[in-house]
Amino acid sequence: MITLSNLNCYTIIGIELEFYIEGIEKEYLFLSGVKNKIASLGFSCEKESSIHQYEIKSGCYTDLNDLIKHFELAQELLTETAQKLGGNVSFKAKPYLDRAGSSLNVHVNLVDSNNSNLFYCSKQKYSNCLIHGIGGLCAMMKKHMLLFVPNDDSYLRFQYPDIHTPTTVSWGVNNRTAAIRIPNSSDKCRLEHRVPGADCNLEKVLVAIIEGMVFGIENKVLPPNRVYGVASDPQYKMDSLI
């Protein structure tokens, strides 16, 4: 894994994985079964808005090896639970062209040796670490698309996007149409990388995201203009991801 030792800080990372279940008649049994099994890993599960789509969320991790290990175990438990109920789980990024895609959203914060949030922000100002981190992620985003979109089928998510699928190199505050989202939370400010699909390799995705942030912070890279509306709207002239 890439380290941030030169920056004298460390990452706190959590993930959200969307997926579909197939062939399960009593979905409430799947949800209750999964919740009990993954709770010990620090994961939760809830229904997503699209039919038969669900999402698991991790807690906050400083040890990325533990996050990767627990994530893989959670995926195995999802599959095992679905199969016992006579169905299956799809981790494809776009298993249905007429439904929402499935993403692997990564939430990241940077903390220094005093446990201070380096991504602090206020209504008037965002920290240099946050701005430059976003800048680096945007600068390297197209280079990293091979990791975020690893399979031919992965591109279907961008070719047939729903409103919340990011299709441009962009960022915004509480804007789920942008590739990088900053949730509305000044005291615990973090960034959310929304480009990777559910079929990605988590370790490779984390390496790419950390590499992008380090590049931006070390080189003081400025991001493109913040997007306030739908990031794919041609008026913003954002660079297309594919």
Rank of each mutant, 00 (worst) to 15 (best):
23 G>L: 03
85 L>H: 09
70 H>V: 01
191 L>W: 12
199 D>L: 07
162 D>P: 06
213 M>A: 13
222 L>I: 05
170 S>N: 09
234 P>F: 06
173 V>Q: 07
96 Y>M: 12
132 H>R: 10
158 F>Y: 15
17 L>S: 10
90 S>E: 08
167 T>E: 04
125 K>P: 01
220 K>Y: 07
57 K>D: 15
66 D>S: 11
215 F>C: 05
106 V>P: 06
15 I>M: 02
134 I>W: 01
54 Y>Q: 05
71 F>D: 01
83 Q>K: 14
47 K>Q: 01
20 Y>I: 10
224 P>M: 11
65 N>S: 05
217 I>K: 12
197 G>M: 13
136 G>C: 09
28 Y>K: 15
130 L>M: 15
172 G>T: 04
62 T>P: 00
188 K>Q: 15
176 R>N: 13
83 Q>C: 07
125 K>H: 00
241 L>Y: 04
71 F>L: 04
141 M>R: 08
160 Y>H: 15
8 N>L: 00
165 T>G: 12
235 Q>N: 06
151 N>P: 04
32 S>P: 00
52 H>Q: 14
53 Q>N: 09
138 C>N: 09
61 Y>D: 11
38 I>A: 09
177 T>I: 08
53 Q>C: 02
94 K>L: 10
27 E>C: 03
241 L>D: 14
219 N>E: 11
186 S>I: 12
85 L>S: 13
65 N>Q: 08
67 L>A: 02
207 V>W: 04
240 S>W: 06
104 L>S: 13
104 L>Y: 06
66 D>T: 11
123 K>D: 11
89 V>N: 06
60 C>E: 10
145 M>P: 01
15 I>W: 07
127 S>P: 08
7 L>N: 06
194 R>P: 12
11 T>F: 03
165 T>H: 09
68 I>T: 02
206 L>W: 01
119 F>Q: 01
128 N>E: 08
81 T>L: 02
19 F>L: 10
152 D>I: 15
233 D>T: 15
36 N>D: 01
148 F>S: 11
46 E>F: 12
26 K>C: 08
175 N>I: 11
147 L>F: 04
11 T>P: 08
140 M>R: 09
70 H>L: 01
236 Y>G: 08
129 C>A: 03
60 C>Y: 11
119 F>G: 04
34 V>T: 14
146 L>Q: 11
82 A>K: 03
160 Y>T: 10
108 V>H: 08
128 N>F: 06
28 Y>M: 09
222 L>G: 06
89 V>R: 07
198 A>W: 12
117 N>I: 02
